[in-house]
Structure formats: C-alpha cells, structure tokens
C-alpha cells in the first residue's frame, strides 16, 4: 500500500511544466488591474467600456466605482529587473502525471491595484509584496569567500 502511494507521488512530482516564452517582446501589453473583490468569472469583459473609461485620475488619486462600490487605486510598477507576465495554459492536463505547457500570453510592466474605499498606501499588501524580489536577491545572491 505504502509503495503504491509512493509511486504515485513520484510520478506527479516528476511531471514538468514547460514555460514557452515565445516572442515576449512582441506579446500583447494590455492594461492590468487588480480588484478588491472576487469576480466569479473567467473570460471576456467590457473592461474599457465600463471601467477604464470611468476611471478618474485627480491629484495623484485614482477613483472609479465597480458594482456601485467606490474604489481608490494606484499604479504600481514591477520591481526593477522584473517583468510582469500572464501565463496561459491552452490544454489542461487530464492527470497530474502529465507534462504541461504554459505560454506567455501577455506582458506588463505596471498595473493598477484598487482598494475598496480606502486610499492606497505603502502599507497595502500588494505594495509591500513588491519588496520581495530585492530581498530575495540578498537571501539568494552568492556570498564570496
């Protein structure tokens, strides 16, 4: 019994997912927004008709509303030396032992994140998270003898 579980585990950990970079420089560069709500939907939406066109950008504060709720937002840039990628899997695997492939479907260098009603600050999780790559460099950079 134990042997079976082990074999199974091995094969699922043995599978790899290839990241097809393709021509990243030529990839689509759409506007990207991170919203303060969970939208139970994956797929097309009239973002520019209803949302982007209604965004107001005044005095360093961006405001808009979504479903009747007031949002306040801010644009953030990817950390230096980092690029935003949207990965897409065109064919879902039928089992977790199969090798998979994801491709870069679009690229972004900055995005706008939105808070529900509260003005964006440096204490927001998204902004704080941007400190990670720099710190990772310190933790993982090589140390010289």
């Amino acid at each position: 019994m134990r042997w079976i579980t082990k074999r199974f585990k091995m094969s699922s950990n043995g599978s790899v997912t290839t990241l097809q970079l393709g021509l990243v420089a030529q990839a689509d560069k759409p506007p990207v927004h991170l919203l303060p709500c969970e939208i139970e939907h994956d797929g097309p939406a009239e973002v520019s008709r209803y949302f982007t066109s209604a965004v107001k950008n005044q005095k360093h504060e961006m405001t808009v509303s979504f479903r009747g709720r007031g949002l306040k937002g801010q644009e953030v840039s990817c950390p230096h030396g980092y690029t935003g990628l949207v990965l897409k899997e065109d064919h879902k695997p039928t089992s977790d032992q199969e090798d998979r492939t994801v491709r870069v479907s679009s690229v972004f260098h900055r995005f706008t994140y939105w808070n529900l009603e509260t003005p964006p600050t440096s204490d927001d999780g998204v902004v704080m998270g941007m400190a990670w790559p720099d710190l990772a460099e310190a933790i993982h950079g090589s140390v010289d003898d």
Partner: peptide, 18 residues
C-alpha cells in the same frame, strides 16, 4: 477577495506570483 482585469478579460484568481 481579489481578481484581475487583464485587457478585456476577467481573471477570477487574484493571486500574483513572484
């Protein structure tokens, strides 16, 4: 409680991977 707008699409999974 996070989701993305990517271009003219919604992505329900609001995670950001590093």
């Amino acid at each position: 409680y996070r989701s993305w707008f990517i271009g003219q699409t919604v992505q329900r999974d609001g995670r950001l991977l590093y």
